[in-house]
């Protein structure tokens, strides 16, 4: 697929940032090799190379590649989510339907641009049909709790995540063929916000935002991270259909949603008694640990862009 001019500059920029980060990480490791925080930092940086690489390959294949990549991310996220869910034997058919019908159909609808159906397929059809399947199995033990878990998992891991590739189908005047940049913009701002919150938190974090939920989220990290990531988003206005001021507003909303998403996911993990969602991404934890902020930001970003910028 032919990439827009801006993508080349963006790729060079991201590669530059990763090279600098790798150099800093290796320098720190040389000075203080046995420190677990620095070891974890270098694992995270390495995982970033892999994630950016996968995203770049998906971009080269265009819409099909990106849709497939996020379908896979949804699959991994759902697998982690349902692992921590108290399902019973009676949920077997409902869970099979979620994985092998719900997920592929949602991404197929996104791939074919059927907005009218993919925006209600899970909130309406899956919402009504899954409890029917569960009821037919005849097991009423903790029924409401079980179907609520499954529906919530499907909304979070599949419906919300599918709004990232859905950005490709937004018809924005004067922005035709460049929608991949919207995905790059969303991912850079959300993940940039996560990284900058981590950096500010590690360097000067003292006061905890929500000690009952997460030991690592501090006010210093939150304010520093969101302010700097909003500035980053504003500075990237040239890859979007937005003006610099609009880009700042959009990225601010993305950052706040991303932060709150992280908080919600922490509350779930705390309730389930785990530190990470899984072992999938070295240094980061599971797919959901990395994706949590994207999940909360993507649908809002999608709908704001759709409401104000599409024809």
């Amino acid at each position: 697929m032919i990439q827009p001019q801006e993508m080349i500059w963006l790729s060079l920029g991201v590669a530059g940032v990763l090279i600098v980060a790798t150099a800093i990480g290796q320098g720190l490791a040389r000075r203080d090799g046995a420190n677990p925080v620095i070891e974890n930092l270098n694992q995270r940086i390495f995982a970033w190379w892999v994630m950016v690489g996968l995203l770049a390959i998906a971009f080269l294949f265009g819409k099909g590649g990106v849709t497939l990549l996020f379908a896979f991310a949804s699959f991994s996220a759902l697998r982690e989510f349902l692992t921590l869910t108290p399902t019973r034997r009676g949920d077997h058919w409902a869970l099979l339907a979620v994985f092998f019908i719900g997920l592929p159909v949602q991404y197929y609808l996104v791939w074919t641009d059927w907005y009218g159906l993919y925006s209600i397929f899970i909130p309406v059809y899956a919402f009504l049909i899954l409890p029917i399947i569960a009821a037919l199995s005849g097991d009423s033990t903790r029924f409401l709790e079980r179907i609520a878990f499954v529906q919530w998992g499907l909304m979070i891991c599949v419906f919300c995540v599918s709004h990232v590739p859905a950005l490709l189908s937004l018809p924005i005047l004067g922005f035709e063929g460049k929608q991949l940049l919207l995905i790059a913009y969303l991912v850079i701002v959300v993940q940039g916000s996560d990284v900058l919150q981590y950096v500010f938190g590690k360097l000067m974090g003292r006061r905890k935002v929500a000690p009952a939920l997460s030991p690592s989220k501090t006010w210093e990290g939150l304010l520093g991270g969101i302010a700097s990531a909003t500035a980053l988003g504003a500075a990237l206005w040239w890859i979007t259909p937005f003006s610099p001021l609009q880009a700042a507003g959009f990225s601010f909303v993305i950052c706040v949603m991303g932060f709150c998403g992280g908080l919600v996911m922490s509350a779930i993990k705390r309730d389930r008694g785990v530190k990470d969602w899984g072992p999938m991404i070295e240094g980061h934890g599971g797919m959901l640990d990395r994706l949590g902020s994207v999940i909360f930001a993507a649908p809002i970003f999608f709908h704001m862009t759709r409401y104000w910028f599409t024809v």
Partner: peptide, 8 residues
């Protein structure tokens, strides 16, 4: 059941 559900 012979069809597996994906779980970690």
């Amino acid at each position: 059941h012979f069809l597996p559900i994906p779980l970690l």
